[in-house]
Design a protein around this nucleic acid. Structure first.
Lengths: 276, 276
DNA sequence: AACAAAATAAAGTATATCCTTCAAAAAGAG
DNA sequence: CTCTTTTTGAAGGATATACTTTATTTTGTT
């Protein structure tokens, strides 16, 4: 069974002494405080002694303060992201789908929370001012590259997809008026890195969408957009969040392109809203 | 002046050594980890020594690890209290990204709520019992087809991608022991429909992932999985939700494949969980 | 008011964490 | 390849934290 700290606390609450209730209340209202502060400080905040805080931990069934902290810390760092509301009546299969797709929701939200204004701005500017945009991605990342280049080409008309099987090297891409967008995720394909290196040597501006600021390609890139994908989990997990990001980027490019008239004439991205 | 830890980190980032960059990246992506873990553990998580973590703190201008922790802890506790992420301070650009990505979150949630058990079950069974799986998608949908076939091939080893440019028709796919998965979204490519028709004539089972139960391919398909994508909006919107669905499907196939031993021998999908 | 029981705090010890110093390893220059 | 410089890791003392034990305060009862 193993109850959560919330359940344990609520269960014991009525039979606790006045001081212990203070601690219980604090734990329920500000659990993060327990996760990051030492027992003495938690006590000081609510006006009881360190001893009381530790005693409370024993009272609700933990080995000590450290023991409770361990649970809280893992909740704040891990479970928060994979937490899923279990609906009754759902079958195991649908529940499984729900679990995985909720994970995607959290990953998107997570990345949303740490978008970097400046980096995004630079990336958008670079794309909008380039006469030619090459998009590359190997293996897993090929799908991302295809998605971006296909849509970008539809919008601006000047993007092309680098095809690992047939294309070799960067051909004659003019360094001045072009840029290359490279997708690179763990495990980083060596070809991707080689391509980035070649581009850098030729002076072609590189934008990379990758899973860390210290990924191999980051070294060569001018603009690094890191997406947090928690690669301890299955590595398909990066898919939805990456596409979500690409789309947001595309939508921004559309908006700006509209106002400066640089969109494709054939382009008609929206279907008119029907009035209800 | 007194910059925040984010600004300090970004400012120093370029001149940091490789190991210190790892620490910097971790601080930017998972700051809460620094707030609740001791330096040694933070180092262990990213694969550097405790010393490096502390050295990094000095590098970006703190007296030590404790000093950085103090700032982080107060940030997390204060922000928790002010609750609802302050919209203030967010720029128009980040807000725009937030709007679009939130849309994806809602679309995923939406589809999650109307998954059909029976259809999913049939699709999974068909894929697991097929000796050969062909995956097809044109234009926009090519990225989905690539993603599914690439990963399916990695997991089961018997999937292949239909390449519109080079492949013509279904070749000699045996009708008995195979199936074809077709992605088809508005506006429905005529080639997709032709392919579906051909498959049906040859008696090859068809699974289609599409945007409506009445889409053109649905007529020929044996199993129709409709994803709600609300195509009044920009048509890139289907991307994240489709990938999220594909992933959930893949994960379910992995789980079942594991228990019946039909996964690829080279397959190793997870990285081991580290013990706390 | 006096005593007993419970609750709380202080003190002391063991353990964990931080941080400095120094040594090893890796990277770079000649 | 050798030497120098830079980067990284290991060890040990200083400090902080958790936990146990003992003392004090508070509460409740007669």
């Amino acid at each position: 069974m193993s109850l959560t700290y919330v359940e344990k606390t609520k269960k014991k609450f009525p039979e606790l002494s006045k001081g212990l209730k203070k601690v219980a209340d604090e734990l329920l209202t500000e659990p993060l405080s327990f996760a990051i502060h030492p027992a003495k400080k938690v006590g000081a905040i609510i006006g009881v002694s360190e001893t009381m805080v530790i005693r409370f931990c024993h009272e609700i069934g933990y080995a000590g303060y450290s023991d409770l902290q361990r649970e809280l810390r893992s909740i704040f760092l891990d479970l928060e992201k994979t937490e899923s509301k279990q609906q009754i009546g759902e079958t195991a299969l649908v529940q499984s789908f729900a679990r995985h797709m909720s994970g995607d929701i959290h990953r998107i939200q997570d990345n949303l929370d740490q978008m970097d204004e400046e980096t995004l701005e630079k990336a958008i500017q670079k794309i909008l001012t380039s006469e030619k945009i090459l998009v590359a991605g190997y293996y897993h990342s090929f799908a991302f590259a295809h998605w971006l280049s296909f849509n970008l080409n539809y919008i601006l008309g000047n993007a092309s997809l680098y095809r690992p099987e047939t294309d070799t090297g960067l051909l004659n891409l003019p360094a001045e008026k072009s840029c290359i967008v490279i997708f690179s995720f763990y495990r980083y394909a060596v070809d991707t890195i080689a391509l980035a290196k070649e581009a850098k040597e030729k002076g072609i501006p590189i934008i990379t969408i990758t899973d860390s600021r210290v990924s191999p390609v980051a070294e060569f890139a001018d603009i690094v957009i890191p997406l947090k994908v928690n690669y301890q989990k299955a590595f398909v997990a990066k898919g939805p969040v990456t596409l979500s990001f690409i789309n947001a980027l595309l939508m921004e490019i559309i908006e700006r392109g509209e106002s400066q008239g640089s969109l494709q004439p054939t382009y008609k991205y929206f279907v008119k809203d029907e009035k209800n």
